[in-house]
């Protein structure tokens, strides 16, 4: 049987597509790089990853220009049909700008870029994205962003992950990642593709990629 296909989107300025593709391979799926000008996802796509980076150089607003590219029309149709979508960092920003997730990502309260390891607390164990971990369990995953403070109405969404301890960026309710109410679209600021290799310190990011094909 062939491996399930996961589309890994590439916009001009996307940076984490190769690490995301390796993480997709790590859960036994086949990553397919998908160009922003394409109007359709590759044949047989079961899930979509929108990796981090600085699509379009963050011009206008982070994620704003990428959310208006042809490929995002196909991603919306995929999500509307119940297909899973994982947006990481800039991918999360793109999902909010596309209306696939509520809220916006504002600049960090410090107004500076922050790169740090974070302990993330599972706040909702009911979605596929945390792989059956109980509420209150933690995942060690690094984050690195300038505009990562989620702002919106937590009641309009499912809060999946929160920063444990000090709020690093000023997001509402220390939110690190959310999903839509249906649970098939997930966005988070930390980088699970950077937590796949034991030599890098943590493999806790694997559960989020496993959910793509679970």
């Amino acid at each position: 049987m062939s491996q399930p296909r996961v589309a890994v989107l590439r916009f001009p300025g996307t940076l984490d597509h190769e690490s995301a593709a390796r993480a997709v391979e790590g859960v036994g799926a086949e990553p397919v790089f998908t160009h922003h000008e394409d109007a359709a996802l590759p044949d047989g796509t079961v899930a979509v990853v929108i990796p981090g980076g600085f699509s379009y150089g963050d011009h206008l607003r982070p994620g704003a220009l990428a959310s208006r590219t042809p490929i995002m029309g196909a991603v919306k149709a995929h999500a509307a049909g119940g297909g899973r979508v994982l947006g990481i960092c800039n991918g999360f920003q793109i999902l909010c700008e596309s209306g696939l997730l509520p809220g916006v990502l504002r600049p960090n309260a410090s107004l500076s870029f922050i790169c740090r390891q974070a302990e993330l607390e599972v706040a909702d164990s009911g979605t596929a994205w945390t792989g059956g971990r109980a509420e209150g369990e933690t995942l060690s995953i690094p984050f690195k962003h300038h505009d990562g403070a989620w702002f919106g109405d937590p009641g309009s969404t499912r809060v999946v992950l929160r920063y444990r301890g000090e709020n690093p960026n000023g997001s509402i309710d220390k939110i690190a990642g959310i999903s839509n109410l249906a649970g098939n679209v997930m966005g988070l600021m930390p980088h699970p593709e950077e937590a796949q290799d034991p030599l890098l310190g943590s493999v806790d990011g694997r559960v989020l990629f496993a959910a793509l094909v679970a």
Binding site: A23, S112, F113, C115, K144, H191, E194, L200, G201
Partner: peptide
């Protein structure tokens, strides 16, 4: 902390 130390998933 103002620099991305990790991108590329290779920084040990």
């Amino acid at each position: 902390e103002q620099y991305d130390q990790l991108v590329g998933a290779g920084t040990m």
